[in-house]
């Protein structure tokens, strides 16, 4: 028995070592660096500086994340519901095929193609002009905050829809059948039977998307227009242009806190749903 325990410990040791070395150590090191001076004393100066210079950007990041996540939730649930519930199988199978495409396109490629697509005289506006829906004077550029949201939603939609469709397909059909027999409309089935059961999956999809959105640097760099910008850009800027790891780490701490806040909110909700609180 005893030897088997130590044997098991040896089995997990490589994985634990990997996690410790490449995840926990950098994490705690960056947290440590955010609140200490070069000499090792505790200080809040870096955090103060981060807030003094970048409070607008922090707010901007939160708004971008929230807007993207809300749009993502609405769109991915609609598509997943359409795929699961629609009676028109042929168009739905087409939809089921095409929505996955962005999964295979990296963020930087997405950003690059959106940059010339969404611009004032980009392909999108050109297409609108050619089809007579807009005149050249009415066109607007989507580069900036709206473009950033569009790119994030475009890219993450496939991932969220994939998760949510999977969860919907795994639901117990007898409930849906019963509701149907009792005359419930599809919308009602969606909102009253299906959604309540897949909230955990939606939560996971949204939190993973949040973390991705916070971490992507190429999109705000290529689609955003300087000020305000997202935290990731500011962190890169602090390092690239001042070699200032402290304030960059302080900004990192702020992003951890934003993600942690969302995760906490989600955990609390899901525990509440289970009746634990």
């Amino acid at each position: 028995m005893r030897s088997s325990t130590s044997y098991n410990l040896w089995l997990i040791a490589p994985a634990a070592l990997m996690v410790g070395l490449f995840f926990l150590y950098p994490l705690f090191f960056s947290l440590y660096s955010a609140i200490t001076t070069d000499e090792g004393g505790l200080t809040l100066a870096h955090l103060e500086k981060a807030f003094e210079l970048y409070s607008n950007d922090i707010l901007f990041t939160i708004i971008i994340v929230l807007a993207s996540v809300v749009l993502l939730a609405i769109l991915s649930i609609s598509i997943a519901a359409l795929i699961t519930l629609s009676p028109f199988r042929s168009i739905v199978s087409l939809l089921g095929f095409i929505y996955r495409i962005p999964l295979f396109i990296p963020f930087i490629v997405t950003a690059q193609m959106m940059r010339t697509f969404l611009a004032k005289n980009g392909l999108m506006n050109n297409a609108f002009i050619a089809s007579g829906m807009l005149t050249p004077l009415e066109t607007v550029s989507f580069l900036g905050w709206s473009g950033i949201i569009i790119v994030f939603v475009w890219k993450q939609l496939a991932f969220c829809t994939l998760l949510i469709t999977g969860a919907m397909a795994a639901l117990d059909e007898s409930q849906i059948r019963a509701a149907r027999n009792l005359g419930a409309s599809r919308l009602r089935i969606l909102f009253q039977i299906m959604l309540p059961q897949i909230t955990p999956t939606i939560g996971v999809a949204m939190i993973l998307s949040t973390v991705t959105i916070m971490s992507v640097l190429s999109v705000p760099l290529m689609i955003g227009t300087g000020t305000p910008t997202m935290i990731a850009t500011d962190m890169a800027f602090r390092i690239n242009s001042y070699g200032d790891y402290h304030v960059a780490n302080a900004l990192g701490l702020v992003s951890y806190l934003i993600c942690a806040g969302l995760a906490w909110f989600y955990l609390r909700q899901s525990l509440k749903d289970k009746g634990a609180i």
């Binding site: 940059r115 010339t116 611009a119 004032k120 005289n121 980009g122 550029s141 580069l143 900036g144 760099l221 290529m222 689609i223 955003g224 227009t225 300087g226 000020t227």
Partner: peptide, 18 residues
């Protein structure tokens, strides 16, 4: 003025007449 996205972004917007 208009803010552009990056070194290449400025050239891009010049290119498209923005």
């Amino acid at each position: 003025i208009t803010f552009t996205p990056g070194n290449a972004g400025t050239l891009d917007m010049l290119n498209r007449g923005e």
